[in-house]
Design a binder for these strands. Sequence first.
DNA 1: CATTTCAATGGACGATCGTCCATTTTATTG
DNA 2: CAATAAAATGGACGATCGTCCATTGAAATG
Lengths: 225, 225
Amino acid sequence: MSQNAPADPQIAPEQGGGKRQLLREKNRLTLLEATLDSIAEQGIAETSVSEIIARAGLSRGMIHLHFGGKENLVEAAAELSNQRYYEQLERHLAASGDRPQDKIVAIVRSDLSEEVLNTRNVSVWYAFRGEARKRAVIAGLSDTRDTRMGGLAKRSFVAIARAEGHTHPRAVARDASNGTLAILEGMWTDYLLHPDRFNRGDAARIVFRFLAAMFPAHFNLSGAR
Amino acid sequence: MSQNAPADPQIAPEQGGGKRQLLREKNRLTLLEATLDSIAEQGIAETSVSEIIARAGLSRGMIHLHFGGKENLVEAAAELSNQRYYEQLERHLAASGDRPQDKIVAIVRSDLSEEVLNTRNVSVWYAFRGEARKRAVIAGLSDTRDTRMGGLAKRSFVAIARAEGHTHPRAVARDASNGTLAILEGMWTDYLLHPDRFNRGDAARIVFRFLAAMFPAHFNLSGAR
DNA sequence: CATTTCAATGGACGATCGTCCATTTTATTG
DNA sequence: CAATAAAATGGACGATCGTCCATTGAAATG
């Protein structure tokens, strides 16, 4: 988690942080970005301290200074990447309509958007997944993701299944939620392995093909009805 | 060591494999298994030569002797894991009926079977995925998987979509094939992150919930109709 | 049984790993 | 403009990495 407290004695509110603190934060972020870049391009196995500081253009000691060690840096990078994922999701949700099907469409669109589903993010995400069993912090991020998105999707699908007149709306909704998130996972894998031939429109159509078959009154091939 | 036959590699039949060759093959396999174990438990990043030979109970030079280096060993381990995946798939396909929906059911059942979907396989598979971008050999394995399973699924779904009277059976089949494989991918991720709470029956039901919605004359919640 | 053959051993090697800290640089304070 | 405080530097350190080969051991051969 957090180890080296920045120990900021006073945050000068009228100055918005002195030049010194500003540079410090900038360097911290530079290290995180360099780490994500390296992991995306070379994988975690090839991402060494030397590799990171070379990309960041900073000195060797910075990693220990800012993060206390390589491991904490890598985990902080994972958290940053995860946080950005959620920022995009919240953005899409905020811009969506209020109907339950609108929320589902927002989740799908966010997960397949260029800001979320791109080479760097996917590479980084799968690199971390490969380490999830060994790193509790990283496993925790995936759990949070499950809980937040899964909860929202489930609630939306319950309303949809009820409106469609299903006899067991909650069972249907649970399966629809898990299935939709699973299929989005699969789309990420597709993108990881074939970033060139991947097509966002095709991916969305596949998702909505399933959803339209299950809830024809609420979805069609291009999203919400 | 006399009963634990290595399931005959490609040894010339007239040689029958002397005791020397038998031991050699056994050690080779021991190295591969130790590598897969280490990758599954510690991840690729923590899988060193020292770690592998300690697990295998063999000497340091064996890796260079048998594989020429660590990289080749890791790639051979990936190929072995992939090969075993296909053996299970072929087994399920051979035991299935001949109707197209039977083939789809066989693919799903194989992908969710205990022999295929277990902690070790999933951990190993995701570890390799994280390196797919950097290792051409590993990326190639995923491609093969796409081609073989994707082709079979697509052909089956075309027949199914035609029988269901869809106006654009090939477009429907393409989406159904990609969607089904994607959702199976997602189930693997579920298992990776929550091996304890994962339920094979639930996973299969989710898949068939989607398929039954799309092809009600061919599938129901428990598989083929 | 003596000899040949080849797999297996395990230590040496230089390279690289991540950590840490004495020193230098630079912003801030008095 | 000094004096001070904090951040950044970059090299030293021991540990560990993966590779390689001279040597050992055991199976095959005659």
